[in-house]
Computed example of a mutant assay.
Amino acid sequence: MGKGTLTIGMLASHADVNIETIRYYQRRGLLIEPPKPREGYRQYPADSVDRVRFIKRAQKLGFTLDEIATLLELGDGHCAETKQLALQKLQLIEARLADLNNMRNTIKALVNQCETGGGEMGCPIVASLGKADGMG
């Protein structure tokens, strides 16, 4: 094994992912697959750990793998373009939050309408979900 290099298993372990994740990132072009020597195992540069961790952190923030590929291509020195991608992601997150708030408010209203055990009128939650517009 070369100095400062890792096998795929070591890379996966250090980056806290499984080997299939490394292989998937390679297939997606996010991580370079080193050539395989005649004898032994492929050797990944030690900085591959940072790259895999970058990908995982970006995924946790909601970036897709295609967006992450763009971020990796841009790299340092392209702050305006990176900021634009982040702003687009922020707008999507804010829209999702608004949708989730609407869902929460609708379910709260349905729960508040619900009588203990349903009674003769039936369950308002089931009745509401059975209507065409879902909350009429």
Rank of each mutant, 00 (worst) to 15 (best):
K60G: 14
T82C: 10
G118V: 00
P34K: 00
L85Q: 09
S13Q: 14
E33A: 14
C123H: 04
R53A: 07
D16Q: 15
T21G: 00
L6F: 02
G118F: 07
T21Q: 00
Y25K: 00
S48Y: 03
E94C: 03
P37R: 09
R38Y: 08
K131C: 05
E73I: 08
G75R: 04
F54I: 11
I8L: 03
G118M: 01
Q84S: 14
M103D: 09
P45H: 05
Q59L: 05
E94N: 01
K131F: 04
S13E: 15
L90R: 15
R51K: 03
N18M: 06
I32P: 02
L31M: 08
A109T: 08
K108D: 14
A58M: 07
V52H: 01
P34N: 05
D16F: 09
E94G: 01
L92Q: 14
M1C: 12
A46G: 06
L87H: 10
L11E: 00
R28K: 15
D50F: 09
G119I: 05
T106S: 03
L90C: 10
L11Q: 04
T7D: 05
T5M: 03
R104N: 13
Q113A: 15
L65S: 04
E20Y: 00
S13V: 04
P124Q: 12
Q43R: 11
Y25H: 03
V17S: 06
Y44V: 07
P37S: 02
N101M: 13
N102W: 13
D47A: 08
A69F: 01
D66I: 12
G122N: 00
E39C: 06
Q43K: 06
Q91L: 15
L11S: 03
Q26H: 13
K89D: 07
H14T: 06
V17P: 09
A15D: 00
A80L: 09
I125D: 06
R27H: 10
N101T: 15
R53N: 15
A109N: 14
F63W: 02
E81G: 11
I32W: 06
G29T: 08
E81F: 08
Q26T: 13
S48A: 04
G29D: 11
A132C: 05
K56H: 06
A12S: 07
N18Y: 08
Q91V: 14
L110D: 02
E81V: 12
A132R: 12
L11P: 08
R104Y: 13
A132I: 10
V52T: 04
V17W: 03
G77E: 01
I93D: 14
I19V: 15
K108A: 13
S128L: 05
L11K: 00
P45A: 14
L90W: 09
Q91T: 15
N102K: 15
I93A: 10
L65C: 05
E39M: 11
I8N: 03
L30I: 03
M1T: 14
L110T: 13
I107E: 00
V52M: 13
G134Y: 03
F63P: 09
R57C: 06
A86I: 03
G2T: 08
T5F: 09
D133F: 01
L65A: 04
G122Q: 00
